[in-house]
C-alpha cells in the first residue's frame, strides 16, 4: 500500500492571484535547493500537470495557464526525515506533506447568492470547502497588484471564511473560538517594482547574506508590516479588512506572512547578482499588450518556505486530516 501524507495543505486566493504559477514555481524552487525536498504527484494527472506547468515557466517562459475546469490535483512534498520535534516520528523514512490545489478559477471562492439554480457552482464551492475543512494548513495568496487595481481580496476571503467557520462549528472543531488551521499568507509579486519599491521605502528589505544572487528579501517578521502598507493602496479600501478577518478567525500564532515571488528577479548572466537598475523579469508580449512573458531564469522567492513552515507546524501539532 503506497505511503500517504499525514498532513494536508490547501491553496486559496482570488482569481489571477498566482496560485498556478506559485505551484509551478514550487517545483523550480525545490530543484534550486541543496536539500532533499521534492514535489511528487500523487496520481498521473497531478504529475503531468506539474510537469506541464513547470515546463511552461522554465522552457516556454510563459506563465502557466490557470485551469478553466474544476480539477483537484494532489502532490506530496517529500523531504528529509524529521528532526527535533519530528523525531518522535523518526521511524518514518521521510517527511511527507500533502499539497492540494483545487485549481479552479478563483471566482469560485467569490460570494454567491444561494438560489436554487446555481449551474453547479454550489457543488463546486462545496468541493472547495471540503478541501479546506480537511486541511489544517492553508496557503492564502494576496496579490497586491490586483488589490491595487481591482481590490477584491476581501471579497474572495470573507465569504469562504464564513462558510469554513460554519462547517467547522458544525463538527465542533473550533479551538479557543477560532479555526484550527495554520495559514501562510503569501504576498505575491514581490518582483513587481511597485511592491519592491514599497518594501524598500518602508525599509523592510533585509538581504540574505548567504544568497549568492543577493536578492532583496522581506523577512517573515516584517512581512505583516508590508501587507499592512500595501493594503493602504487597495482600489476598494477593503484590504485592511483582510488582516482583521484573518486575526478574528485564526489564532495569531498560526498566521504567518511571506513576501513571495514565483518568477523572482532577473539576474544578469555574467554578474549573476541582483541589480537594482535592472531586475524586472518580465517582457511584454508582442501580440497581446496586456500579456507578459518571463524574461530570464526563474528564481522563486519564499515559495518553499510557507509550505515547509505549514508542514512543520502541522507535524508538530501531531494531527492528521
Amino acid at each position: 500500500m503506497p505511503e500517504t501524507p499525514r498532513h494536508h495543505i490547501a491553496m486559496w486566493g482570488a482569481p489571477g492571484s498566482g496560485k498556478t504559477t506559485l505551484l509551478a514555481a514550487l517545483s523550480v524552487a525545490l530543484n534550486r535547493r541543496d536539500d532533499d525536498w521534492k514535489i511528487v504527484g500523487q496520481n498521473p494527472e497531478s504529475s503531468a500537470y506539474l510537469t506541464d506547468m513547470t515546463s511552461a515557466l522554465t522552457s516556454g517562459k510563459e506563465f502557466p495557464e490557470a485551469s478553466t475546469a474544476l480539477e483537484t490535483y494532489q502532490w506530496a512534498l517529500i523531504g528529509p526525515p524529521p528532526t527535533g520535534l519530528f523525531r518522535r516520528q523518526a521511524k518514518r523514512a521521510s517527511t511527507m506533506i500533502g499539497l492540494t490545489m483545487v485549481d479552479a478559477p478563483g471566482g469560485h471562492f467569490a460570494p454567491s447568492k444561494r438560489t436554487g439554480r446555481t449551474g453547479g457552482a454550489e457543488e463546486r464551492q462545496e468541493e472547495l470547502m471540503a478541501n479546506l475543512t480537511q486541511s489544517r494548513g492553508i496557503v492564502f495568496l494576496f496579490d497586491p497588484i490586483r488589490e491595487f487595481e481591482v481590490g477584491d481580496a476581501y471579497d474572495h476571503l470573507h465569504g469562504p471564511l464564513n462558510r469554513l467557520a460554519e462547517k467547522m462549528l458544525e463538527t465542533n472543531q473550533f479551538e479557543g473560538g477560532k479555526l484550527p488551521h495554520h495559514i501562510a499568507v503569501c504576498i505575491t509579486k514581490f518582483d513587481d517594482p511597485r511592491v519592491l519599491q514599497t518594501a524598500h521605502k518602508q525599509r523592510l528589505i533585509a538581504p540574505d547574506l548567504d544568497d549568492k544572487h543577493q536578492f532583496p528579501r522581506v523577512g517573515v517578521e516584517d512581512a505583516r508590516e508590508l501587507f499592512r502598507e500595501l493594503s493602504r493602496v487597495s482600489a476598494t479600501g477593503s484590504a485592511e479588512m483582510v488582516m482583521n478577518s484573518l486575526d478574528k478567525f485564526f489564532h495569531r500564532d498560526r498566521i504567518r506572512f511571506y513576501v513571495t515571488s514565483s518568477i523572482g528577479f532577473y539576474v544578469d548572466q555574467h554578474s549573476e547578482t541582483f541589480d537594482w537598475n535592472d531586475y524586472l523579469n518580465l517582457v511584454p508580449d508582442e501580440a497581446d499588450k496586456a500579456a507578459l512573458r518571463i524574461r530570464g531564469p526563474v528564481y522563486p522567492i519564499n515559495v518553499v518556505e510557507p509550505m515547509l513552515w505549514l508542514g512543520e507546524r502541522l507535524a508538530r501539532q501531531g494531527r492528521s486530516r
Binding site: 517594482p193 537594482w276 537598475n277 535592472d278 531586475y279 524586472l280 517582457v283 524574461r295
Partner: peptide, 15 residues
C-alpha cells in the same frame, strides 16, 4: 530607460 522606471520598459542593456 537607463534603469527601471515607471514606464516598466526594461532598461537599456548598455545603460
Amino acid at each position: 530607460p537607463p534603469k527601471i522606471d515607471n514606464s516598466r520598459v526594461l532598461p537599456c542593456p548598455s545603460r
